[in-house]
Nucleic acid binder design. Sequence first.
DNA 1: TTTATGGAAAACGTTACGTCA
DNA 2: ATTGACGTAACGTTTTCCATA
Length: 228
Amino acid sequence: MAVSPSSPSSLDLTISMPGFSSSPSFPPSVKDLDINQLPSGTAEEEWITAGMEDEEESTNGGPPRKKLRLSKEQSRLLEESFRQHHTLNPRQKEALALQLKLRPRQVEVWFQNRRARSKLKQTEMECEYLKRWFGSLTEQNRRLQREVEELRALKVGPPTVMSPHSCEPLPASTLTMCPRCERVSTSCLEKGSTKTTTTAVANPTTAATLSSKVGTPALHTRQSSAAC
DNA sequence: TTTATGGAAAACGTTACGTCA
DNA sequence: ATTGACGTAACGTTTTCCATA
């Protein structure tokens, strides 16, 4: 699974997970779900004053807030602009404000809120994906546990691990459990060796990216595995 | 080259208000 | 008519980035 923002200002993500690509109910990428497509408003352009007619004066403190209702056309243009870039430089802001007959500050605020909404949607989607992934891993874990039980039940003899170098069976006493990946490994004993018998996760880049994103320490890359 | 500083912009959290069921 | 949930414009504060000394 890869979670990779394409640019700092872009919220587009590409998320794919092993074992999920063929699932009909599981889109191959979050990119397919266009978070920029929000339901468009229905109200026509409208300025609504909050209790007071005049924006400049208020008897108790600062100026009263006015609630702006963007017209369909304004919303459409803003959305279009947002699809092109999620942030505006001062010149773009000014031009857009002029085009929309809004104040630059209003355009700025709209983009701020729009970015926040995007991020929220994205987070929700990521959360959903991680939940499903967790479910899939749980199921996989169950299957493997069952498999282990079955193999134990067979009792065909002591476990044998082949050396990656000599291709001969290693005595069980030379094997260790890697404390980080919790897999049986010979690499920790073979100092200086860049090879390892430890199997890393299916997609190291993905795992590293996800780990750093969601803070799960359990997954590490082939590189870090070899380093141990 | 490294560090401190200040300003601008973005991110974030919250409030206020309108709409609708 | 009232109420609570929801969407969103607007605002204040914090964080991040970058240029400059």
